[in-house]
Design a protein around this nucleic acid. Structure first.
Length: 337
DNA sequence: CAGTCCCGCCAATTT
DNA sequence: AAATTGGCGGGACTG
């Protein structure tokens, strides 16, 4: 009766709290503050209470957007949200130079114009192996995903469509599935940052994403956002789960935590709700806005307003915030038993 | 049942 | 060889 992973039900486990999106939100909130410049992967994992592998996911995606930049082994440089705007511009430029504008619309059984397999052609023989590696990297996929949104005419893009386009014509069921899995990861962090928003494709009714033209953020100055609930450290429990770095399932949260695992979609990321700086001042195709659904209308929290969900959202953040600080202070170093 | 996507094995790279 | 990175996809979780 000793199933190594009794996470199923009696382990008071909530999948949502382990989501990449939430992790991303916490990651961002942890480093988006004065004085932050260098980020150590070990510290991050420790601080956020996740295994190292997850940090790589976050970091690779964020680097693709310019938020971070690898400095050296185990070290990344925090560039902040201010760098996103520029990064997107560059991506858009590149995308237009390439065939990213050929992306038509969402999934259609017909052969839609897909981009030449991922990046470009492949050099004869041993061109640059470093490039070959990048070919399947999460970082590159992230950038290509962005290009799709920024360069194509499509307003709504489904992950299937993106995968299809980015995959060349590989009708490879397996490759497709894998690519989509990665896109889910990216979509999650983008959603948490408010860069994209999940929507329902009018036609197919299937889920898809839309680039929220409003990545409004403080040019690295007032993203501090809601510090109000920052010191809300009274959720009736102590840090009990001192990080969880390399355990497999024992990071049980306090009862309070998982009883309400139905938060909506904590979008709104790290942006201050009243800041008026846009980091992607219309990075649309040709600086020209679509029309009808003008994405200019700042996105608002129109998610089926679930009172509980909202409340949960806030307290969840507060909790992770104070936890982060607490752990930050006492360096889990001597965690031992 | 169709989407989602966590988790961590283990291969590729670096140190 | 050890330590870092990080593909990859089985299969658990949702709704």
């Amino acid at each position: 009766m000793a199933s190594r992973d009794s996470r199923t039900k009696d382990a008071l486990y909530c999948r949502k709290e382990k989501s990449l999106g939430l992790l991303c939100t916490n990651f961002l909130r942890l480093y988006d503050r004065e004085g932050v410049d260098s980020i150590g992967l070990d510290a991050s994992a420790l601080q956020l209470g996740v295994e190292r592998r997850r940090i790589y996911d976050i970091v690779n995606i964020l680097e693709g957007i310019g938020v971070l930049q690898k400095k050296e082994k185990n070290q990344y440089t925090w560039k902040g949200y201010a760098a996103v705007s520029g990064a997107l511009e560059v991506l858009k430029e590149q995308g237009q130079k390439e065939e990213f504008h050929t992306y038509i619309t969402n999934v259609s059984n017909d052969k839609e114009h897909s981009l030449p397999s991922d990046s470009k052609a492949e050099c004869p023989d041993k061109c640059s192996q470093s490039e070959h590696k990048r070919e399947k990297s999460l970082g590159l996929l992230t950038q290509n995903f962005v290009k799709l949104f920024l360069c194509s005419e499509a307003e709504i893009i489904s992950l299937d469509g993106a995968a299809l386009a980015l995959l060349g014509d590989s009708l490879d069921r397996t490759a497709m599935r894998t690519k989509i899995r990665r896109l889910y990861d990216i979509a999650n962090v983008f959603s948490s940052m408010g860069l994209i928003e999940k929507v329902r494709d009018p036609g197919s009714g299937k889920p898809a994403f839309r680039w929220t033209s409003v990545g409004r953020s403080g040019n690295g100055s007032s993203i501090a956002s809601e510090d109000k609930n920052r010191k809300r450290r009274a959720f009736g429990a102590d840090i009990t789960n001192t990080s969880v770095k390399r355990c497999n399932k024992n990071n049980a949260l306090t009862t309070e935590q998982h009883q309400q695992c139905s938060s909506k979609e904590f979008v709104f990321g790290p942006f201050s709700p009243n800041v008026t700086t846009v980091w992607s001042h219309e990075t649309r195709k040709d600086g020209q806005i679509q029309n009808s659904d003008s994405p200019l209308c700042a996105y608002r929290p129109q998610y089926s307003n679930k009172a509980v969900g909202d409340l949960f959202h806030h307290y969840t953040e507060a909790w992770s915030s104070w936890r982060g600080e607490a752990e930050e202070k006492q360096q889990i170093e001597h965690a031992s038993e």
